[in-house]
Amino acid sequence: MLRMLTASFLLITGLLVTGDAIKTPTFTPQAMESDGTQEAVSARVDEHSPSTVIHRADAGYLKLHFDSLHLQPGAYLTVSDSSGSQARTIRGSGPQWAVSVEGDTAIIALHNGSGSATVDTLFRGYSAQEMQERAVTNICGTDQSQEIACFKATFPAEFEHSAAVAQARITFKDPADGKTKIAACTAFRIGATNRMLTNNHCLSPSTWISGDILFNYQCATCTGTELSPGTTVAVDQILTTDAGLDFTLFTVTDFVATAQYGWLNVDPSTPVKGGQIYIPQHPGGGTKKLAVLTEGDGICTVNTVYTGDMIGYECDTRKGTSGSPVVSRQSHKVIALHFAGSTEGPCMNIGTDMSVIWPKIKDYMG
Rank of each mutant, 00 (worst) to 15 (best):
210 S>R: 12
271 P>E: 00
256 V>F: 15
226 E>M: 14
253 T>N: 03
305 V>Q: 03
222 C>T: 12
278 Y>F: 14
300 C>P: 03
230 G>N: 07
289 K>H: 13
203 L>W: 05
203 L>N: 01
242 D>C: 09
242 D>E: 11
273 K>G: 09
211 G>K: 02
262 G>T: 01
277 I>A: 02
218 Q>W: 08
251 T>S: 07
275 G>D: 08
284 G>F: 07
283 P>V: 06
249 L>T: 06
224 G>D: 06
288 K>P: 03
266 V>M: 00
292 V>F: 07
196 M>Q: 09
234 A>G: 08
212 D>Q: 05
198 T>L: 07
295 E>F: 11
208 W>D: 07
274 G>A: 01
295 E>G: 13
214 L>V: 11
199 N>F: 12
236 D>H: 08
223 T>Y: 13
238 I>V: 12
259 A>V: 12
282 H>R: 04
256 V>L: 13
266 V>E: 02
293 L>K: 11
226 E>D: 12
267 D>S: 05
265 N>I: 01
264 L>I: 03
274 G>W: 10
230 G>M: 11
238 I>N: 01
233 V>D: 01
232 T>P: 06
203 L>G: 08
280 P>Y: 00
292 V>D: 04
267 D>R: 00
245 L>K: 06
243 A>Y: 09
295 E>D: 12
202 C>H: 05
206 S>E: 15
226 E>V: 15
215 F>E: 00
282 H>M: 08
249 L>N: 02
275 G>S: 11
200 N>Y: 15
232 T>G: 00
298 G>D: 10
293 L>N: 09
224 G>S: 09
274 G>D: 02
234 A>C: 02
251 T>F: 07
204 S>A: 15
243 A>C: 00
304 T>N: 10
286 G>Y: 06
225 T>D: 12
254 D>I: 02
244 G>A: 14
256 V>P: 02
302 V>W: 04
264 L>H: 02
211 G>N: 04
206 S>I: 13
262 G>K: 05
223 T>N: 14
219 C>V: 12
258 T>V: 11
280 P>H: 04
246 D>L: 05
206 S>M: 08
204 S>T: 09
288 K>G: 01
254 D>Y: 05
237 Q>I: 09
282 H>E: 04
283 P>E: 02
192 A>S: 15
218 Q>I: 11
216 N>S: 10
196 M>C: 03
253 T>R: 05
253 T>H: 07
207 T>Q: 14
196 M>G: 00
286 G>C: 08
260 Q>I: 13
214 L>I: 07
304 T>F: 09
251 T>K: 05
258 T>I: 09
273 K>R: 14
220 A>N: 13
267 D>G: 03
196 M>L: 14
297 D>Y: 15
216 N>V: 09
223 T>L: 14
216 N>K: 03
194 N>M: 10
266 V>I: 14
213 I>V: 15
243 A>I: 05
207 T>A: 08
304 T>Q: 14
207 T>W: 09
224 G>A: 06
305 V>E: 01
240 T>V: 14
192 A>V: 11
286 G>P: 07
247 F>K: 01
224 G>K: 05
269 S>W: 06
249 L>C: 00
285 G>L: 11
255 F>K: 00
286 G>D: 06
219 C>E: 13
